[in-house]
Design a protein around this nucleic acid. Structure first.
Length: 327
DNA sequence: CATCGATGTTGAG
DNA sequence: TCAACCTCGATGG
């Protein structure tokens, strides 16, 4: 799935394109008919991401909680436009593309040629672990394709949810319970108190740090890619018990996660390497294989010391690390 | 075209 | 600890 950065980007799409609008909800798939009915016709009042969870609030006081799980995705279509922080990276895209350094920005004013020949077209934005934009000759709203758990339809935009692990309606008390079960998210709270919460928990536990980083009660939003990359960047052995870390090591981990998450939200990629030239950085943003220090590089030489990258299972997930740099 | 594996969590045992 | 979830790109024939 999308690790924390993608969920923040998706919440931003909702904040930009749905909040403040009256939304029709339906469940084309049929598995969320009752839930959809509870929110149908209400105005969306808030869209927030906490780690990998997203919460959408409606004006009847109820919330929709969505977790994409391993392969869930949101498909946006219609008069969508990307949000704010990346105006400087604005680019115009007509066909199916993979966004590279630039954020996905849809500049419909640039579609003059299509409009002038009167061709109906539909802009789509798929948001999962990667993002894809396309322009299709369909009308609005498009027919739901495949298993759409829930469709959120406004006048000019639509969002289809497929393959989620969780899609439930919650009252405010239940939202509080769900949020209380989530560790600190540095994008939501960059305070010293949040850092302290992480550091205190980590330095108390005998659990290997490679497990603690994946535990959403300890810290929100880290998945298998960021786990491996954070540990490599810190030079930490994944098996080191949390309580063996120094205060400085634990704080550095938190701060590096805050740094990588910010880059992830800005670029839409899990870009975990640095110290690259502009050209190499741009290449790495487009080529997954160049983006990471150790993730999915088992058997290949470490980019720093040349030692073969190791692969083992930890917390039921594949763990990649350099036995030399992370000793 | 069939098969595999994935950035994740849940719930059964 | 493991199967289930039930999507979809990558891979192989």
């Amino acid at each position: 799935m999308p690790e924390g950065h993608s969920v923040h980007r998706i919440a931003r799409q909702f904040a930009r394109n749905f909040v403040g609008k009256r939304i029709r909800l339906s469940s084309p798939q049929g598995r969320f008919v009752d839930g959809a009915a509870m929110l149908d016709g209400h105005t969306m009042t808030d869209a927030r991401a906490v780690g990998k969870q997203m919460f959408l609030e409606f004006d009847n006081g109820l919330w929709l909680r969505v977790h994409l799980g391993l392969y869930g995705a949101w498909d946006f279509a219609g008069d969508i436009h990307a949000s704010g922080t990346d105006a400087a990276l604005r680019g115009r895209r007509r066909r199916s593309v993979r966004p590279g350094a630039a954020d996905v920005t849809l500049d419909l004013a640039g579609e003059d040629s299509l409009q002038s020949i009167g061709a109906p077209r539909l802009t789509r934005l798929r948001m999962a672990e990667d993002e894809k934009v396309s322009v299709e000759p369909d009308g609005f709203p498009p027919e739901p394709v495949g298993q759409v758990r829930v469709r959120l339809l406004a006048d000019d935009v639509v969002a289809d949810l497929r393959g989620p692990t969780a899609c439930v309606v919650l009252d405010p008390r239940e939202v509080q319970v769900a949020m209380d079960r989530l560790g600190p998210d540095p994008l939501l709270d960059d305070s010293r108190a949040a850092e302290d919460r992480f550091v205190t928990v980590v330095r108390k536990k005998p659990t290997p740090i490679g497990r603690l980083l994946m535990d959403q009660l300890v810290v929100s939003g880290i998945g298998n890619v960021y786990r491996a990359e954070l540990l490599f960047r810190a030079g930490l052995n994944p098996h080191a018990p949390g309580k063996s870390l120094s205060d400085e090591q634990a704080r550095a981990l938190w701060q590096d996660w805050a740094y990588l998450l910010k880059i992830g939200v800005e670029t839409g990629q899990m870009m975990t390497r640095d110290g690259l030239s502009d050209a190499a950085y741009g290449r790495a943003l487009r080529r997954r294989a160049d983006r990471h220090w150790v993730y999915k590089r088992e058997g290949l030489p470490c980019r720093v010391c040349g030692t073969h990258i190791a692969l083992e299972e930890m917390a039921a997930r594949k763990l990649y690390w350099c036995p030399e740099c992370q000793s």
